[in-house]
Computed example of a mutant assay.
Amino acid sequence: MDIGVVIKKYRKEAGMMQEEMANRLGVTTPAVNKWENSNSKPDIELLAPIARLLDISLDTLLSFHKYLSDTEIEEIIRKMDRIF
């Protein structure tokens, strides 16, 4: 899942407006809007503050899963087939 989708989901669950999130992170409201619409990504230095603000782990924020999904495995196989 795109980081912007994750940010939007958990921001809304927290009952927070984009403006409030922006103010608390020291960024502009349009920056938060761009993240949520996948027009840009947050700076790496903001990842931990965003996760803390949304009360989620960095793994959740980055959509990290310990194991690959079937879809991810199939995509890797397709890429390897093209290479070889």
Rank of each mutant, 00 (worst) to 15 (best):
I76L: 15
A14I: 00
G4Q: 04
K8N: 12
R11Q: 08
D81W: 04
N23C: 07
L47M: 10
Y67V: 13
R82C: 08
S57R: 03
N33H: 12
S69D: 11
V6S: 04
N33M: 02
Q18V: 10
M21D: 02
I83C: 08
D55Q: 14
N23T: 08
V5M: 08
D43P: 00
M1S: 10
M1L: 11
L47W: 07
K34A: 11
S40F: 07
V32L: 04
I44F: 10
T60F: 01
P42I: 14
S38T: 08
D2F: 03
T60Q: 12
L53E: 14
L54Q: 01
E75H: 11
G15H: 05
L68P: 00
I44Q: 01
R82Q: 15
I3P: 00
T71S: 14
I56E: 02
I7D: 00
P42K: 07
I3Y: 05
E36S: 02
F64V: 15
A14R: 15
K12Y: 07
P49L: 01
E19C: 06
K12D: 05
R52Q: 09
L53M: 15
D55N: 15
N23H: 10
A48L: 14
G4H: 04
R52S: 11
I7A: 06
S40I: 06
R52P: 01
S38K: 11
L62D: 00
F84M: 11
V5R: 13
D55V: 08
N37G: 00
I3V: 15
L61Q: 03
E36K: 05
K41D: 08
V6H: 05
Q18R: 10
E19G: 04
M17K: 14
M16H: 05
I50D: 01
S63P: 05
K8M: 07
P49G: 01
E45W: 05
T29C: 03
L54H: 04
N39I: 11
D81E: 15
M80V: 15
I7L: 10
I3K: 05
L58G: 06
R52Y: 04
L46W: 09
S38E: 13
A31H: 03
M17C: 03
N23E: 14
K12H: 09
M21I: 12
A51V: 03
S57H: 06
D2I: 02
K8R: 15
Y10L: 02
Q18F: 03
T28A: 04
D81Y: 09
R24G: 00
T71R: 12
M21F: 10
A31S: 13
M17R: 13
F84H: 13
T71L: 12
I73G: 00
N33S: 15
K34W: 01
V32M: 02
I73M: 08
D59W: 01
E36C: 02
D59M: 06
L61A: 01
N33G: 11
S38W: 00
S63R: 05
E72N: 10
V27F: 09
A31I: 02
I50V: 12
L58M: 14
M17V: 13
R82F: 12
